[in-house]
């Protein structure tokens, strides 16, 4: 505790002489046109943002259609996914049936590393930036959206929120209980080399969003 006490002591002493700029007494709240807009507009904005990020978007009007779209993405491939109970549209059965192999629980690292497609739901979908909010939890393994080359995220209309602020409000009960919250906005990318866009540096190089009813 010696270092702790010394640092806190130094900080207290410093605050007696610090010349910090004055802070405004109060600031007006930050407006959001999207929050105020009808929720039907969120879906169009979400899709437009995803397309601008290079995300493959498939819209489906029925649960059957969602399952069919996911089936074509996982057929004959090694799949890492959220647990059956956490997936929307009863997708667990589709994955088990169509994939070459399915890891939806605890698994060996080597098997996880060999997965080709990751399938997840989302805890919120942020229209303003095309962002997927994923809570880390025992039935929502983080590696499903991280290790495979392709990440297929299945979004329900009900998951849509206008912006990050509203996502945090919606998830305020779930976030503290989770070990992590992950926001995903497009495929993994880098611009380190001459600012040229390269995809799939470490995370998935391909992001697919299936947007259901």
């Amino acid at each position: 505790m010696e270092a702790r006490e010394e640092i806190l002591g130094r900080v207290r002493a410093a605050l007696r002489t610090a010349r910090l700029p004055a802070r405004p007494a109060s600031l007006p709240p930050i407006p959001s046109a999207l929050e105020a807009a009808p929720p039907e507009t969120w879906r169009a904005r979400f899709v437009a943002e995803l397309l601008a990020l290079g995300v493959a978007v498939h819209e489906a009007t029925t649960p059957e259609e969602v399952r069919e779209l996911v089936r074509t993405r996982v057929a004959g491939r090694r799949v890492r996914s959220w647990a059956r109970a956490a997936l929307p549209y009863d997708l667990g059965a589709t994955l088990a049936e169509a994939s070459a192999s399915l890891l939806d629980g605890a698994a060996e690292r080597a098997a996880l590393a060999a997965a080709e497609v990751g399938v997840t739901g989302v805890d919120a979908a942020i229209a303003e930036t095309g962002t997927l909010a994923l809570i880390a939890a025992p039935d929502r393994p983080r590696t499903a959206s991280l290790l495979p080359q392709t990440h297929v995220a299945v979004v329900r209309s009900a998951d849509l929120v206008p912006n990050l602020r509203s996502a945090l409000t919606r998830l305020r009960g779930a976030i503290p209980a989770a070990s992590a919250l992950q926001l995903v906005t497009g495929p993994s990318r880098s611009a380190d080399i001459e600012l040229q866009l390269t995809l799939g540096v470490h995370g998935p190089g391909e992001l697919v969003v299936v947007l259901g009813p």
Binding site: A83, G105, A106, A107, T131, A136, A137, P138, D139, P141, R142, T143, I175, P176, A177, A178, S179, A180, L181, Q182, L183, V184, T185, G186, P187, S188, R189, G203
Partner: peptide, 25 residues
């Protein structure tokens, strides 16, 4: 692309949870 909030280590599941379901990575 990735904006992460780390709240702490993996959550230990309640006693009696089947081993195969322990997947808070």
């Amino acid at each position: 692309v990735y904006t992460t909030l780390v709240n702490g280590p993996r959550r230990v599941p309640p006693a009696g949870t089947p081993a195969g379901r322990i997947v808070d990575e």
